[in-house]
């Protein structure tokens, strides 16, 4: 195992980290080296979606990706998503729809939904947007409020 330096593009910035173990996951690099703890650590087995970030614009489970595998692809975390209009619209929709309870799953949902809404000029219909959230678990809301947030967010970015 080697602990070499690692460079990543995170939220539009170039970040360089000294001595990153080869086996380190992107989730841990983001949270404990880059200090971006908005990305939440849940199951670490790819089943809950709480750690969802964008890699090259695509929703990605950061617990299943080694930091060294990221390469030159840009990484966008919830902090980055929250800084752009689509992300802000999604966050507002979640808050207004009552889709945030404990909030632990919420950043993952926000990132996954914002990515879908940002893909094309006209957003997909609500049903396909909801399908795109099948990989995100929520234990508090029973999902109905999240579906209402999806509709609100879609309307806001149209």
């Amino acid at each position: 195992m080697t602990d070499a330096a690692l460079a990543l593009h995170i939220n539009g910035q170039s970040r360089r980290f000294a001595s990153v173990p080869d086996a380190e996951r992107l989730l841990d690099t983001l949270r404990w080296r880059a200090g971006l703890k908005g990305t939440k650590e849940g199951c670490r087995t790819g089943d809950c979606g709480a750690c969802t970030v964008l890699v090259g614009g695509e929703p990605t489970l950061s617990c299943l990706l080694l930091s060294r595998e990221v390469g030159d692809e840009p990484v966008t975390t919830i902090e980055g998503v929250a800084a752009v209009p689509i992300g802000q619209a999604v966050i507002k929709a979640f808050a207004e729809a009552g889709a945030v309870q404990c909030g632990y799953c919420t950043p993952g949902f926000v990132v996954a939904l914002a990515a879908q809404l940002g893909r094309s000029k006209s957003p997909p219909d609500v049903e396909s947007l909801v399908d795109g959230l099948e990989g995100n678990l929520c234990r508090c809301t029973g999902y109905r409020a999240i579906e209402r947030a999806v509709a609100l967010a879609r309307k806001a970015v149209q």
């Binding site: 939440k40 979640f94 945030v100 926000v110």
Partner: peptide, 20 residues
């Protein structure tokens, strides 16, 4: 009325046990 913790939670700004 919106909950005061909703927006900060949604943008990942609050500190949970795992973040300590």
């Amino acid at each position: 009325m919106m909950r005061s913790d909703a927006e900060p939670k949604a943008r990942g700004a609050l500190e949970y046990g795992t973040d300590l």
